[in-house]
Write a protein that binds this DNA or RNA. Structure first.
Length: 781
DNA sequence: TAACCTAATAGTCAA
DNA sequence: TGTTGACTATTAGGTTAG
């Protein structure tokens, strides 16, 4: 029987002394199915000393639990190598046998013993999460949890790269917890609301007051999940909060938590992920984390960013007040509405982000529920592992390496001042294209003398074989080809249709992964890390940009600025077009990215503001686009930029003065003055106690769990003490703007942000503060 | 002792 | 647990002027 199935979750179980791969998915009609494959066994590789291959294979083959040990031909960093492939009975035996095999005489190394069994199955059969084509399915009576459509396959499926959006059922989950002492403790504090929403528009709000016991509420929760039977479960920060809390709370009160298709609780899995067997649990926070444009990552801000729900339209309850709203029966409905807003936002966010998550899973090869929590390095590495398998290249083991660094890109000194009519010329995907063109890869680097024809990297002199193509190069070529395919397929569908959206997310995921290849090759933790590889990429990049600069100058174009892969030049259309044409002839794609009618540089690199010929305002690098400045300062700077570009410097000065006046008269909200900063480590590890660290300590004092990775929102108050740090308080502890230190916000936020742009025009602090003339102090300085 | 200087620390953005 | 380059605020810890 032939069948197409969209893979949702993959795991394995044991049948006697044999492993059984279990693939949960939906068929083309949206029916939930499981396919079992009993024809695959785990294995790893042993690298013997030269000449001892057969001897080692025989010794390994005699070991209990080993099914087969055979000598095979593989490659290691491009060089042919003889390895012993040791196949074992069940995945649980791999670790033990790996250690025993290591002690066999004449064994140099053991490789690929750290690859999870179901991932191994996917790599070896070139399976990616997505549509799978099964050509030899047999129905069986075996029940797999609550799924009744169970099949056994006689052969592994074939992965289809493109296909329609599957008919998935999904739900979102959000819990509220009683927390009178700050951060709740699952051993003590009950879950008071479980909010659920599904793709059919059903919303269920389970509130503790409507049940005889918390256990009854959990049972109702189990029953709803069973009835809805979602393929995908969305949460927001659910890997760090909801899932562990539910699991720990269920244990504490001895309640059942039956969320998986086996009827079991969520289990902690790789990358800090909580897995729900048979479904894909997706924590949307993981995807929002990667979006650099989204500065505030809490659900209310994110929902607003995506146009799902305005913050002004939702009930806003500070986390530490949740218990008060619960205790006060007059306010309890507000809390319930709050939970509803959160779960509905989460569901909609999930609907929007799911296509990208599916494509990122497909491209990286990681299961749908793991790809989010996996690091960029892990995503790229598994993608490479798939390619390496196809090329017969063995995966090196992970090793700790001492810190080392290498030279990066060129950044030109900008010409400060106002420029008119400037074109920005950009290299498209510069680093991937450099890697492709010069065949830069760990397996093409020449390490011992010349081997045929090669490319030599400028400045650093490292050499790369021209042929055969390397691991990275082949992969990059495939990514580019797949992207071309996705784009051409896309054009067959109306913009915004489900197929179009899915293909658009596919081409986006392919681009993201191609661009991540360079970062991966310079990552110390990479299996295939070779410093010379990363160093050569940037060396060629510098060379390329320098060449482009010279070519521009030769044509009489004035170069205003440049950074890594971009060049800002006077827009003389004919000359620029000719330049672009000439660089393209060199085999690198460049294009005019945008044209500014007015562009302003200060003396700083990586910072500029510009007015495009289309009338858009760009602000790059400045405080206005930074998440660690108050909204007040960011808004002022943004408006100053706009006025300077579209109106006049005088107007901008007037505007800044009016803002200062508003401040002095307390015409602002608390939200305007919150400063947000991320804690990159736990509070005790800091050497310098900066304001946000003190604010974090104040939160901890009140019982909050604040630590590494959390973002602290604080304000500067005037009644705290002499030192700035003393005056930094978490904004949730301040409810009156009269407590705010106005002078700090004027002198350290608004004025510097405004001056950053206005000082180009000779404006100084005194002008902004309305101090005309010279003060007595000026004579002394 | 206040004023001043500099290095170190820390976070965020550009590419 | 993707890279280097760059800017900026603030603290920490001194030295200096008076």
């Amino acid at each position: 029987m032939d069948k197409r199935i969209y893979l949702i979750d993959i795991t394995y179980g044991l049948v006697g002394n044999s492993p059984e791969i279990r693939m949960f998915g939906v068929d083309e009609d949206g029916r939930k199915v499981v396919v079992l494959d009993r024809g695959f066994r785990p294995y790893f590789y042993v690298i013997p000393e030269e000449g001892f291959e057969e001897q080692v294979a025989k010794a390994a083959g005699r070991m209990q639990g080993v099914v087969k040990a055979e000598v095979v031909d593989r490659r290691m960093f491009g060089k042919p190598i003889k390895a012993v492939k040791v196949t074992v009975t069940i995945p649980e035996k791999v670790r033990e046998l790996r250690d025993r095999v290591k002690s066999i005489q004449h064994v140099k190394d053991v490789l690929e013993a750290d690859i999870r069994f179901y991932i191994r199955y996917m790599i070896d059969n070139d399976i990616r999460p997505g549509w799978l084509m099964f050509s030899n399915l047999r129905p069986t009576d075996v029940k797999m949890g609550r799924v009744s459509n169970v099949y056994i396959t006689e052969e592994p499926p074939r992965s289809l790269s493109i296909g329609a959006m599957p008919k998935l059922s999904y739900m979102a989950l959000d819990i509220e917890v009683y927390n009178p002492r700050g951060t709740p403790d699952p051993r003590r504090d009950p879950v008071i609301i479980i909010a659920l929403a599904n793709h059919m528009g059903d919303v269920k709000l389970l509130t503790l007051d409507r049940y005889r016991s918390e256990r009854d509420m959990f049972n109702e929760f189990n029953a709803i999940v069973d009835e809805w039977d979602p393929d995908v479960v969305f949460g927001y920060n659910s890997n760090k909060f909801d899932m562990p809390y539910l699991v720990n709370r269920a244990n504490a009160i001895n309640a059942k938590l039956q969320l998986s298709r086996y009827g079991t609780p969520p289990e902690q899995s790789v990358y800090g992920h909580w897995s729900i067997i048979g479904r894909a649990h997706i924590d949307l926070y993981n995807f929002v984390e990667d979006m650099t444009d989204v500065k505030r990552k809490s659900l209310d801000y994110v929902a607003e960013y995506f146009g799902i729900m305005k913050r002004s339209e939702r009930v806003n309850i500070p986390g530490h007040r949740v218990y008060q709203y619960w205790d006060d029966e007059g306010k309890r409905d507000l809390l319930i509405k709050y939970a509803r807003d959160d779960v509905v936002s989460t569901l909609e966010l999930g609907r929007r982000l799911l296509p990208y998550a599916m494509q990122l899973a497909s491209v990286s090869g990681l299961p749908l529920d793991q790809v989010g929590p996996a690091s960029v390095g892990a995503r790229v590495e598994w993608m490479i592992m798939h390619e390496a398998y196809k090329m017969g290249e063995l995966a090196p083991n992970r090793v700790e390496r001492p810190y080392e660094t290498y030279r990066g890109a060129i950044v030109l000194e900008p010409k400060p001042g106002v420029h008119r009519n400037i074109a920005v010329i950009d290299f498209s995907s510069m680093y991937p294209n450099i890697m492709l063109k010069y065949n830069i890869s760990p397996d093409t680097l020449i390490t011992n003398g010349a081997e045929g024809d090669y490319y030599t990297a400028p400045e650093v002199g490292f050499k790369f074989r021209k042929s055969p193509r390397g691991l990275y190069t082949v992969l990059l070529q495939e990514l580019i080809e797949a992207r071309r395919e996705a784009k051409s397929e896309m054009s067959k569908y109306p913009e915004g249709s489900p197929e179009w959206v899915l293909l658009n997310e596919r081409q986006r995921a392919l681009k993201v992964m191609a661009n991540a290849m360079y970062g991966y090759c310079g990552w110390l933790g990479a299996r295939w890390y070779i410093r010379e590889v990363a160093e050569s990429v940037t060396a060629w990049g510098r060379h390329l940009l320098k060449t482009a600069i010279n070519m521009a100058k030769e044509r009489g174009l004035s170069v205003i600025y440049g950074d890594t892969d971009s060049l800002f030049v006077t827009y003389d259309k004919d000359k620029v077009d000719e330049l672009v044409g000439k660089i393209n002839e060199m085999g690198f794609e460049v294009k005019i990215d945008k044209v500014y009618s007015k562009l302003i540089f200060t003396e700083s690199k990586k910072r500029y503001i510009g007015l495009t010929v289309d009338g858009d305002i760009d602000i790059v690098g400045f405080e206005a686009v930074r998440g660690d400045w108050s909204e007040l300062a960011r808004n002022v700077q943004e408006r100053v930029a706009e006025l300077v570009l579209k109106s006049s410097v005088d107007e901008a000065v007037k505007y800044v003065r009016s803002v200062i006046d508003d401040l002095r008269n307390y015409r602002f909200t608390l939200d305007d003055v919150i400063i947000w900063k991320t804690l990159d480590k736990d509070v005790d590890e800091y050497k310098a106690l900066q304001p946000h660290v003190i604010a974090a300590k104040r939160l901890i004092e009140k019982g909050y769990m604040v630590g590494k990775g959390d973002t602290v929102g604080f304000v500067i108050v005037k009644d705290g003490g002499d030192k700035l740090t003393q005056k930094a308080y978490p904004y949730i502890f301040v409810d009156d703007v009269k407590r705010i230190d106005i002078d700090y916000y004027i002198e350290k936020q608004v004025v510097p942000a405004a001056l950053r742009i206005l000082e180009v025009f000779g404006i100084n602090e005194a002008t902004l503060l309305g101090k005309t003339g010279r003060s007595i102090l000026d004579y002394f300085s």
